[in-house]
Design a protein around this nucleic acid. Sequence first.
DNA 1: ACCTGAACACCGTTCAAGT
DNA 2: ACCTGAACACCGTTCAAGT
Lengths: 188, 188
Amino acid sequence: MRADAKKNYDHLLNVARTVFMEQGSDASLRDIARRAEVGLGTLYRHFPTREALLEALLRSSFEALAERADELQAADDSAAALMEWLQEIIAFTHEHRGVIAPMVSVIEDHESALHASCVSLRAAGAALLSRAQADGKARADLDGAELFDLIAALAWLREQPSHASRADRIFGIISGAVLNTGKSIARR
Amino acid sequence: MRADAKKNYDHLLNVARTVFMEQGSDASLRDIARRAEVGLGTLYRHFPTREALLEALLRSSFEALAERADELQAADDSAAALMEWLQEIIAFTHEHRGVIAPMVSVIEDHESALHASCVSLRAAGAALLSRAQADGKARADLDGAELFDLIAALAWLREQPSHASRADRIFGIISGAVLNTGKSIARR
DNA sequence: ACCTGAACACCGTTCAAGT
DNA sequence: ACCTGAACACCGTTCAAGT
């Protein structure tokens, strides 16, 4: 990449990070180009779709979450490890408002720039689930795709302001449904 | 209302029904006015917000769902009644793609035209839940707002094409978490 | 090789002017 | 009392023209 192109690319990523954080992942691409003081075509040249921009922006975070799952595979308590990872991925999507919808919409679209990252995350979750199942701590009749569905549902709910006060409770209820520990979540 | 106004009002509702069914509840209001062969201002006069249009369109359905809950209160099995009603409300939101997001976003906004309908539905669900709880068939540590969250999460998931094949399974898992029957959902 | 921004086809919302 | 549609302020996406 030419030096000037590289500079634009990096600057666009930084501005996009700011704007997405402020306004969510459905922020205006025009606004990003404007704030980066770059032609709109330059943004489209480097990132042909919103998904491509999100992927470039969040790649390292996705990788970190996948690595975190690997680390947690070594934890003593496989159920606690799964719960911890669920907490972390929900916290991540909560931080990046609006990111769960594109993640779900591209999970079966092999052409999307965001596809690989989502599949990796699903696989990372599936691996943690598998170990918990092997330990008899997670319900056996659940697979990675279903776990990803539950994560997506929780993540979407988390984005709704009216839900905020119940977020922990609902997380407990749904993640509790994944485990074999009966219905023991914190009572009020 | 003047006769010509009434005619426009009714015609707009019919066209909106068609367009929302075709494209979801976030369809273009401009397109609706265009297809109704009515000035854009006429649509805004009758329905000042998208929520007002949705409310006028779905009021009878919301009422039917609330009445259905009343009927089901008389059923023998309170747990089955709750499950049946959950199925029906999810089927309704699935039929009306895109409607769950505004429903959740206005549930705490007393000014919204859609507010009353959503609160009624939440109350209807809460009543069914209460009876199941009194019978010891639903987990005691759950309230209407939390049930509404779970419904919303399921409804949103249902809108995602990639989720379609697992819809029944996830419904079983989440609704199972509401009941006190352990984790007995259909195995594969 | 890369950048620019006008052009095109859309939105939602408001409101002066018309009947 | 009601209707109309231009006007305004936005979008996403493409692409001819420039450096």
